[in-house]
């Protein structure tokens, strides 16, 4: 596999986050980390690319992400691109996918585009599919393992009831589950190499996007209200029969599995 692009997102470390008056997550001053599923996608990409391939990481966010992107270069990515523009704040999944697709087109041809299956802050899982649609490519979601051979790709997908094995051709978009591929750490040589690779920075103008295609203005969905619930609380009947209880528990566990 020669050229792979991985979309990554910085998400809050803590589950306790604040939103502004427009229900946008306040990211300033909070501790961020790379989304676990995106990290898994990056490791899969690094393994597929091997020594001769290249892996580009692409993210959208504030300029503060330059340094965390450098960390991904130290872990083995060959190129890092940051899309940052105030006009993009508050983008919904569709506006995000539009921006990412414009960047992918600008950055060149890729054999494979990998994403995490969902980000732990929004939990929608919509961006990979929307990105594929915007690029006119097929999409496979919830990939667990990914192997390449001269004829194409073998992907194992995680389903609620088990797994499914698929064969696919490139180019394609694949979203990967968290923890399928534990991401390697930055190595000493990788860190030295990363110092000499600049993080490329793009804005809406570089991507040829109009303000009404970005951010809140370019979003089809609007968050009108938000309500907080006690995390982990779930209302349901109290089950006293062991067999029925085990069955109900099995159902709940399947629900949250992917």
């Amino acid at each position: 596999m020669k050229r792979i692009l991985v979309c990554v997102k910085a998400v809050p470390v803590s589950a306790f986050v604040e939103v502004d008056s427009q229900h946008r997550l306040k990211r300033d001053g909070i501790n961020l980390q790379w989304n676990a599923a995106d990290a898994s996608a990056l490791e899969a990409a690094l393994r597929l690319a091997g020594e001769d391939g290249s892996v580009t990481v692409l993210t959208m966010g504030t300029s503060k992400l330059e340094s965390p992107l450098r960390e991904l270069l130290a872990r083995g990515a060959s190129r890092a691109v940051l899309i940052t523009d105030r006009r993009m704040a508050g983008a919904d999944t569709q506006a995000t996918a539009r921006v990412l697709a414009a960047a992918v087109k600008k950055l060149g041809d890729f054999d494979l585009i990998l994403c995490g299956c969902k980000a732990i802050d929004g939990e929608t899982g919509q961006v990979p599919g929307q990105l594929a649609a915007a690029l006119g490519l097929p999409c496979v979601s919830n990939g667990e393992t990914l192997e390449a051979d001269p004829d194409g790709l073998t992907i194992t997908r995680r389903l609620e009831t088990g797994t499914q094995e698929l064969r696919g051709r490139t180019p394609t978009v694949i979203s990967l589950c968290a923890y399928s591929y534990p991401l390697r750490l930055p190595g000493i040589l990788g860190m030295r190499r990363a110092r000499n690779i600049p993080v490329e920075v793009l804005n809406a103008d570089d991507l040829g996007l109009l303000p009404e295609q970005c951010g809140l203005k370019g979003s089809a969905t609007k968050v009108l209200a938000m309500e907080s619930r006690f995390p982990g609380m779930r209302r349901g009947p109290k089950e006293t029969d062991l067999t029925l209880g085990a069955k109900a528990l099995g159902q709940i566990l399947r629900e949250v599995r992917p």
């Binding site: 470390v13 960390e71 130290a74």
Partner: peptide, 9 residues
């Protein structure tokens, strides 16, 4: 290269 998490601490 100090991670965001370490800097936070």
């Amino acid at each position: 290269m100090i991670s965001q998490n370490a800097l936070h601490h």
